[in-house]
Structure formats: C-alpha cells, structure tokens
Design a protein around this nucleic acid. Sequence first.
DNA 1: TCATTTAGTGTAAGCGCTTACATTTTTTAA
DNA 2: TTAAAAAATGTAAGCGCTTACACTAAATGA
Lengths: 352, 352
Amino acid sequence: MDVTAQKNELPTLEDVAKAARVSTATVSRCLNSPDRVSESTKKRVMEAVRDLKYSPNFGARALAAKKTNTYGAVIPTMDNAIFARGLQAFQQVLVDNGATMLVASSAYDPEIEENQIKTLIARGADALLLIGTDRDPGIHEFLRDRNLPVVIAWACTTEPALSCVGFDNVEASRQLALKALDLGHREIAFLSAFTKSNDRARNRVIGARKALEERGLDPSSMPVVETKYSIRSAREAFGALVRRSPRPTLVMCGNDVLAAGAVQEARDMGLDVPGDISITGFDDIELATVIRPALTTVHVPHRKMGRLAAEVLLDQVRHNSGPRHITLDTHIVERASLGPAPALCRTASLPL
Amino acid sequence: MDVTAQKNELPTLEDVAKAARVSTATVSRCLNSPDRVSESTKKRVMEAVRDLKYSPNFGARALAAKKTNTYGAVIPTMDNAIFARGLQAFQQVLVDNGATMLVASSAYDPEIEENQIKTLIARGADALLLIGTDRDPGIHEFLRDRNLPVVIAWACTTEPALSCVGFDNVEASRQLALKALDLGHREIAFLSAFTKSNDRARNRVIGARKALEERGLDPSSMPVVETKYSIRSAREAFGALVRRSPRPTLVMCGNDVLAAGAVQEARDMGLDVPGDISITGFDDIELATVIRPALTTVHVPHRKMGRLAAEVLLDQVRHNSGPRHITLDTHIVERASLGPAPALCRTASLPL
DNA sequence: TCATTTAGTGTAAGCGCTTACATTTTTTAA
DNA sequence: TTAAAAAATGTAAGCGCTTACACTAAATGA
C-alpha cells in the first residue's frame, strides 16, 4: 500500500462542464458573470460545482484573466498594534469585495522593503499599499513602469502617480506642541523613532520644531533622541533625556509605544507624570488608554485610513480610476499625561 | 494623448529567450535550477533578464508547476498582539525560504474561518496554518481530501493527519492555579474569553478547575465569566466578578488583555493589586510588562511556535514528510499581580 | 578507433482557465 | 408570418510557464 501523500487530482472546469453537460465557457460564465447565463443552466452548473467540490485553480485563473485579485501591503512591522488596526480594516474591505490581501513587513529597512515590494509583484499583486513616502525614487519609478496602482498610507504625497490616504504628521505634531506651549512648557524634548527613511517620524519632530519657532523659541534647542521602536529602548532614551540640564518639563514622543516606555521610566525614577514631567504620545493605540497616567496623544484614524486605502485601490484596479489624494483629520486626545508645566522646574532650570 | 492607464506589456520568458538567443526551456532552467545550465549561457541569460527587467508571471508559474509557494494562515484576529509575534516569526521563516505568507483573520467566528480557509485554498495556498482545534470536523476532512498540509498552532492535537506546534493549555493553566493555591488563595474566579469554538480559552478554564480539584476544592464552585476580547469588556466582567460574595481573592484571566482590563478596573475600584486581590494573565505579551502592577502570567513561546510551524509546513510541502506533533513548554512568569491571599479578605467573606 | 556516457540545449505538449468570436435559440417587432 | 435583434451557449485560441523527451556535442573508456 502506498503511504506517501499524493495530491489526488482536483476537479477542473472541464469536469464540471461535462457533469453539467455544458461547455467550459458556460461554467466559467456561471462563476464570473452569472447574469449572462440562464437560470436553468446556472442551477445545473452550480449543482455540479457543489457535487464535485470544485474550486477554481488560482494560477490558471490569474494567467487567463491577467489579474489575481490580490492586493499587497508592505508595512514596517507586524510586531505591534500600530498598523494592525489599519491593516485589519484594509483587509476587511478587500474581502468584502472578493479580493485577498498579501502582507509583508519590512522591519523598517528600506532594502527589505524593496525586496518585499518585488516579491509581492512577482506574486501577482494587482495593487500595493505602502506606508509613508521615504524610499528610493527608483522604486516609485519601477512601480510606475508596471503601471501598478499604489496607495501611500499614514502620510500624504503630492506625487501625481501615487494615491495616498494619510494625514499631516507635521501639522498634527505641531498642534500638540502648541497645546503644550500654551500650558507653559518651555523645555521640551523629543523622543523619536529613528527618522532615517521614516518620514512619519521625521515630520513629527519637524512639527514640534515649527510650533516652537512660532512661539519665538529656538527650534534647534529642542533636544531630540532617536531610538528603537520598543518600550525598553524608550526607557533608556527617556532616562538620558531627563538627565539633561535644563531638565525638560515635557517629553514629546513620536509614538505611543515610546511614550509608554517613557511613562514607565519616569515613574520608576520617582517622577510624577504629569506633576513633575509631562509626556505625550502619538497614534492613540489601545496602549495609550491602558497605562497610568493614560496618554495625551494624537488620535490617528487607523481604521478609516485602512478602509479608504482599500477603496481607493479597488477603484483604481476595477474602474481604472486615477490616483486620489486623501488627507484625513487627526485630533488631540487629552488624557492625563500632559499637564501644566511645573513652575519650580522652570525656575530651577533658569539659573543654568 | 491617451491619459488612461494601460498596462504596458511586461516581458515574458520568451522575450528573454530571444534576447539571450536560447530556448525558453533554458531560461526557465536558469531561473529554477541554475546548475543544469552552463556558466556561459547562464551569464547571457541573466544579463537579458536584467536588461528586460524580467520578472516571472506568478499565475503561469503556478499553473505549470502546480504549486504557488504560498502558505496561508488563518488567525482569529489581527487586532492585538497575541498572534502578531508568532505570525511574524512564521513569515520570516517562509521568506527566508523563498515562500510567501497569506494571512486572513476570522474574528473568532467559525463560519468566517471556514470561508477564509476556502479562500486561501482557492488562492492556491500550498499549506495552511490554523489556530486551535475547534472547528467543524468537515473542514478537516475537506483539507484531508485535498491533501493539504495543515499545522495547528497554539494548541495540540493528536489527529494524525494534522501537524501541530502548540502547548498544553490545560497544563499551563493548572500550574498557574496550583501556584495560586499554594499562596493561600481559595476563592478563585475565572475571567475567560468566550469558550465557544475556542479550545484554548476552554482548556485554560479546565486547567484551573483541575488544580482546584486536586487540592480538594469543588471545581464547579469556581465562578467563570466569559467576555469579549477587549479591555473594556474585561473591566465590566471583572466588576461583576468582584461584586460576588464571597469576593474572590484571585481572578485568573484567560489572557493578558483581559487581565489588563481587570487590573485597571480593580485599581479604579480602589482595590490594591495584589494586596486586596490578585490577578493573573496568560500569554505574556508586552502589555503584561507595561501595566502596573506587571502581570504574573504564563509565558507562551510565540516566536518559537511561529518559526516551528513554518518549518514543519515547509518540510511537509518540500520533502513530503509526514505530519509532526510538537508540544512546547510554557512557564510561569512571576511579576507583581499575584500575591498571597489576603487573610482579611477571606475572613471578611466568611460572615456572608 | 568507435561505442557509450554525460552535459547542455531545444522542442513542444500541456497546466486550467478566460474570452473573442461564431453559432444557435428565443424574443421582439413589423 | 417573417426578419431582425437579443439572449444563451459553444468553439477554440491563447495566457506564460515547466518539464518530459529528443537531440547534439563533448568527454570517456575499451
């Protein structure tokens, strides 16, 4: 007896056609444009499909139809919640439209990202979701050559060949900084994710600088520390930032994960947040509501972004519509981690 | 001038063959088994590939080779970190082996899961990763019929046709409960995820019951509340549990997310954790280390599980090896949320 | 020297589907 | 009633690749 596994032959379109006593074309039509087939034959065909447990062969379909109904997404990381929600929404819309999502992550590495993009294309992706705008222009060219619809998410671009569904990172960060300045903060430090090839991170720092400038402060005096995307590194970086003199009364963080680390470290150092030092986040992921004090942060409409991104792409692929540029609003969520600047601290830092 | 986007024709194998003045077979061999081609022609062919920016057509390849090099994964949710890490590791191994991952999520709904499984198969998945064992047996049959390698993760199964890479949920939970019992806890309540069609959740409750029984306590007396997988619902459920009489001295939670909600609610109710009430989690995701008190929880080797799952599947597909059953160890991570049972509390509850 | 192996390459038959076009059947209108 | 239009179905040509098999040329051994 043969024990080795062997793919038993799956039924093909032809088998179904034979069983239903119609041509393969009719079966194909039943599956793809049911209203071009009469009710009676449709019923017969569908029965055969069920009886034989037929399921179309993906490769053959892709080859003949010249499209795969597959949409690729390359995100920086799957390890935390930042992109999860948006991606979930993205996928939901695709599934609802009979398409499939293919994800790959780049670990924030441009080279890996390029590879993943090429892989997804080789895999037959009909369109692509990419995060942010920072990448070798050659890639965008490559994509344009292939005439692949691409949507940039989490950021905006004016590039006419690309769609985008994002928000203004500079402006959102600026608003938050402005609010902090109104609360009396003058010694502001920034705890950022690595800004190299990460426009979101970079723009958030820029936004803060802009606010400083508007209020007549020297933007270049704001200390910025860049660190890895993890609680642990955020703690270390926060420690370094706080030991500076003058001590900052506010540490703005490039995202909620860094902020969570900062809050933790502050408390372990015996600092009251926001009594002694304020901390802000960015993104408004669940984590922001879980830690104590809860984070004052920028709410980013992740779900909406994912949903719209899918809709834009679907539209470009199915209706050949042109690229669209959508900018979503963000807003500040005031929770507990940002308070008025402590008067003492400000004086303390003056004598310097 | 024509403004509408139109797919410009991509180069095919034949174009490359022509450019390199060889047959299509040779080009194909260059790409798939380079050592069967002489150095000189290989060089010529590769040059042509580069010049023409050739990239093989996925559909055609899948059709001709009868495999897609695509591995599907259906997970209950992408919304939180529980599966993210494992999936990331799963994908990594696949990518390292030139394969691609296709993910879909089921929202903990068996019907959606079934759909997603079928979609992934229709999409040509060579193998499947599934979470847990609870599903219509018809599906497993269906998969067996197709002779599709399947690995069950996050749980174990003895089903000979299926591979698994998981851990013993019952045993892990039992150990944790035993530890709590040793700390003097007698009034133990369980805050669980919905157990319907979720064997992991169910088994974690069972494990706790088992421990109770071993210590001569009535397992059926343990209150169990099931709730949705979210911080908010966990808070509500925890509130209900605590208002019971006798008040539990320990609330074991089916996972860290629920535990995080429980901790939060406890503190908002003015209860000290673990002074007044202990809380335990399960999974050991990052969240467990972020909240205060940090969670005592069961560490699950997510990364290892994902990695091994990929390896098992790759092995089954590429070397036609048989199903494997791997059980990984878990261990308890003692942090701060589980302490000795408060003596007072126990007395306090006696007068009832 | 010639038969035999071996390495390298070419030929061509599909893989299972979609779809343009041709054909047949039904409906509609005159 | 019959011609024309519309609806339903069939025919068959690919889609771009892999691979069994055939073939040629070079290497090997007797």
